[in-house]
């Protein structure tokens, strides 16, 4: 079923991550993404891995749900890993040398860590942001973070409202698609067999009703908004005012320490090579 897709879905809860201000989570997510792309040593990866695991535990979202979220990107993962495996040229002797296929030790290491990087990125951002933040508070957060742009006449509120509506209607559209698919299946439509052209044609009975009902829905929503005198953000007050609390500052602190630690791990090793035994250094601070 289409509704099995969990990537990008919100899971209500009351863990400490759920309770954070959405702006905090957005900023921390940006920090996290930067960190994941900066990190280039196994020790750094270990740090990120541990922090992602503790995020999962703190959010109290079941591991099964999280793994299900990674499932749809498994082919992308395999593809990037294979590209890295075959395209990376190393200095040492290739491990496999079969006609035009050459695999180096560096390639294997890079493929593994690339895959790990993508997995950590997906899990980390979804636990920190999408799984634990309702779409409404997410757009509220974005609107508030972007509000300085209002000074240069960018209609931030309108964009935020459009995003809220778009996010709000994703589940509705998924449900609608499933309903229409079921209706057409009941009339003997077949979506999963035949040539590519035949399959594309089989989508017409789904796409047309979906468009028709989406336009109708948009019309109805617009009328409903006008009936309640919606006029953009002029004189509009909010039900829930975003406010940074103690826990938000605490989490900022944790985030900065985390980023600093990873950057430190990138810089420091060259100074302590003399202190640590060579083998330890080679394992933990190997540059990927």
């Amino acid at each position: 079923m289409i509704s099995d897709i969990t990537l990008g879905q919100y899971f209500p809860g009351d863990s400490c991550i759920h309770k954070l201000d959405p702006r905090t989570k957005i900023i921390l997510t940006v920090l996290f993404i930067v960190t994941v792309f900066l990190v280039n040593t196994p020790l750094g990866f270990l740090t990120i891995l541990l922090s992602v695991i503790s995020l999962i535990l703190l959010s109290r979202i079941s591991i099964r749900v999280i793994l299900k979220g990674v499932k749809p990107i498994i082919y992308v993962l395999i593809f990037t890993a294979l590209i890295n495996l075959f395209m990376t040229k190393g200095e040492s002797q290739p491990l496999v040398d079969f006609y035009f296929i050459e695999i180096y030790k560096e390639g294997i290491i890079r493929a593994v860590f690339m895959a790990l990087r993508v997995i950590l990125l997906i899990i980390g951002t979804s636990v920190l942001l999408t799984y634990t933040t309702s779409p409404i508070s997410l757009t509220d957060g974005i609107e508030s973070l972007l509000s300085p742009l209002k000074k240069i006449k960018i209609p931030v509120h309108v964009f935020a409202m459009m995003m809220t509506i778009a996010l709000r209607f994703i589940p509705t559209l998924i449900e609608e698609t499933e309903k229409i698919m079921n209706a057409q299946k009941s009339r003997g439509a077949d979506f999963s067999s035949g040539s590519l052209i035949k399959r594309a044609k089989a989508l017409i009975p789904i796409i047309i009703p979906l468009f028709v009902s989406s336009f109708k829905r948009a019309d109805e929503l617009a009328v409903a908004m006008e009936c309640r005198c919606y006029r953009g953000d002029k004189n509009r007050t909010k039900l829930v005012k975003l406010e940074f609390r103690g826990r938000d500052y605490a989490w900022f602190g944790i985030g900065l320490v985390f980023l600093a630690a990873v950057i430190a791990l990138m810089i420091i090793p060259s100074h302590i090579t003399g202190i640590l035994p060579e083998t330890v250094y080679n394992v933990f601070f190997y540059k990927i």
């Binding site: 609608e176 229409i180 209706a183 299946k185 009941s186 009339r187 017409i204 047309i208 009703p209 009902s213």
Partner: peptide, 18 residues
């Protein structure tokens, strides 16, 4: 089976397309 058991779903008018 779907030809032998015909199902008209709730509010079926959304399924019209042709």
């Amino acid at each position: 089976i779907r030809f032998r058991v015909g199902l008209v779903m709730q509010y079926p008018e959304y399924q019209l397309f042709d």
